[in-house]
């Protein structure tokens, strides 16, 4: 199922989808998800999309559970997800640091031309999880998923 805000990747690619399990006793499906950011406004749409998909596949009584621990990290974005982001012109995140301190010094490569000559225009971008960058080589502005 595609992410409602970044439509080139699935919620599985992003690591939002944590598990899909069937309760052996009742046969009920339990889908567990976690938000990227606490205030992510896409969560309601994601829940509704999951319910719709479950109803369509014959699981009208399925449960969608939201968990916050462990906290989502950009390290959970799969390699396939990273490749899809880059192909869509969104620079994927660098590895997140474990101590929760924001990494600032790693070079971000331009997803268009691959140049490391890039600069940050704004630390906050079109969605909570992205920052706005610009390539000094090809002059293209691009989104960058912030390491978290």
């Amino acid at each position: 199922m595609v992410d409602p805000e970044i439509r080139v990747v699935t919620i599985d690619d992003l690591g939002i989808l944590r598990s899909v399990q069937e309760d052996p006793a009742t046969g009920r499906v339990v889908v567990t998800i976690t938000p990227t950011y606490t205030g992510c406004p896409a969560m309601d749409v994601i829940r509704a999309d999951i319910r719709r998909a479950l109803v369509a596949t014959g699981h009208p009584d399925a449960e969608v559970r939201t968990v916050h621990k462990p906290a989502w990290s950009t390290d959970w974005i799969s390699d396939a997800g990273r490749a899809k982001l880059a192909a869509a012109g969104i620079a994927p995140p660098a590895p997140a640091r474990r101590d929760g301190v924001v990494p600032l010094t790693l070079a971000v490569r331009c997803p268009r031309c691959g140049s490391p000559e890039t600069e940050q225009i704004s630390r906050f971008g079109s969605t909570a999880c992205k920052a706005l960058w610009r390539c000094r080589s090809c002059a293209e502005p691009f989104d960058h998923v912030k390491a978290l």
């Binding site: 606490t38 906290a71 301190v101 924001v102 630390r123 912030k146």
Partner: peptide, 29 residues
């Protein structure tokens, strides 16, 4: 939030672990 992340209350610990990453960006800004 960093201290809450390791406190015995599991719900507050989960919220702390999540929110401290975001607050680190606010502090930096």
């Amino acid at each position: 939030y960093t201290a809450l992340a390791v406190c015995p209350d599991e719900r507050l610990a989960a919220i702390g672990a999540k929110a401290r990453k975001e607050s680190a960006y606010h502090l930096d800004h």
